[in-house]
């Protein structure tokens, strides 16, 4: 199987679908001539022209709204948020229009719109350029929220996203754009709402998505050295949500740690913990632990930033607590 980077996987999904379907167009800041801030769209303007790879002014609300208008009327636009931090400028379009227009039109309108871009922190971009918005967007009915972490899933889920007839919040692991992995050749899709068991285990379930998944795999290795077999679940999709895979795993391990970069209150981890207590209460041998980002705007200094996000040590400690091996 060919090996490619996360970035290349995304690009190949978009390019292949643009070959197949003329209604697919890209919009975003510096995605064309510049090649994309993160080079995800590099070269596509040469291949598809400036009517399909549309460089926009820096006005997220305007171009997201315009893309939504295109999506409502027969096109399949893909909007690049240079980073998801800028999507606050477009929240009125995403939430008030994209997520709701099908409902308040009584089903007269469909919205095949993908909004994609890097999400999360870890590269010292400080407060305004560091957010994990899965919980925020996951709150609203009418949109789907996904967060692939492997190049395989990046391509397969992007193809699913483009072909979906709903607004998709596609949150990329920005810190992993250069990470490599095996990607099948040709057309394949990865469905939404189906979590991935990244590593099988029997003693404790570690649950996350996006950039935290490789971290969980490291934790699992650490725990293995201590004689603990950890199962790692990559949610892949926040809404729709795969309850079954989580519950089945907890029924097996009886213990769960949920990890996220975002803030703890009203977050994805809160929801995962709630689902586990609702559906696997009798199977639990310990309260569900949540490991989250520090309750502060993201700091700049490297040591402070590292302290603000979940670490191998923090997660391993949480796992030991649910195993009653550590206080």
């Amino acid at each position: 199987m060919p090996v490619m980077t996360y970035r290349e996987a995304l690009r190949s999904a978009m390019a292949e679908e643009m070959e197949r379907d003329e209604s697919v167009v890209l919009l975003g800041e510096d995605i064309g001539v510049y090649g994309g801030t993160h080079l995800v769209t590099d070269g596509l303007i040469d291949k598809f022209g400036d009517k399909r790879v549309i460089d926009t002014p820096i006005a997220e609300g305007g171009f997201t709204g315009a893309a939504l208008g295109m999506a409502m009327t027969g096109m399949r636009p893909i909007v690049e948020m240079m980073t998801w931090n800028f999507s606050f400028q477009a929240v009125d379009q995403i939430i008030q229009n994209a997520a709701k227009v099908r409902y308040f039109s009584g089903g007269q309108v469909t919205v095949p719109l993908v909004i994609r871009g890097p999400n999360g922190g870890g590269v010292q971009l400080s407060a305004q350029h560091t957010h994990s918005l899965e919980g925020f967007y996951g709150h609203f009915p009418g949109i789907k929220v996904v967060s692939p972490v492997t190049p395989h899933d990046a391509k397969g889920m992007m193809l699913t996203a483009i072909r979906d007839n709903n607004p998709i919040i596609f949150m990329e692991a920005g810190a992993l754009y250069g990470a490599k992995g095996e990607v099948p050749e040709g057309d394949y899709t990865v469905p939404f709402g189906k979590a991935r068991i990244a590593r099988e285990g029997t003693d404790v379930t570690l649950i996350s998505y996006g950039r935290q998944v490789p971290l969980l795999e490291k934790v699992a290795e650490t725990l293995e050295g201590e004689g603990v077999s950890a199962e790692v679940i990559d949610l892949r999709s926040i809404r729709p949500f795969d309850t079954e895979t989580i519950v089945n795993s907890v029924r097996k391990t009886h213990r769960a740690v949920v990890v996220q970069e975002q803030w703890r209150w009203f977050s994805v981890a809160s929801e995962v913990a709630a689902v586990i207590q609702e559906q696997a209460f009798d199977d639990l041998d310990a309260p569900v632990e949540r490991v989250s980002g520090a309750e502060v705007p993201a700091p700049y200094a490297r040591n402070l930033e590292l302290a603000a996000f979940p670490s191998v040590d923090q997660i391993a400690a949480a796992a030991r607590r649910v195993l009653y091996r550590e206080n």
């Binding site: 305007g62 315009a66 893309a67 939504l68 208008g69 009327t73 096109m75 379009q93 229009n97």
Partner: peptide, 10 residues
Amino acid sequence: IPLGVGFAYA
């Protein structure tokens, strides 16, 4: 308003 501009582009 942005939606209408998108309609016209399409």
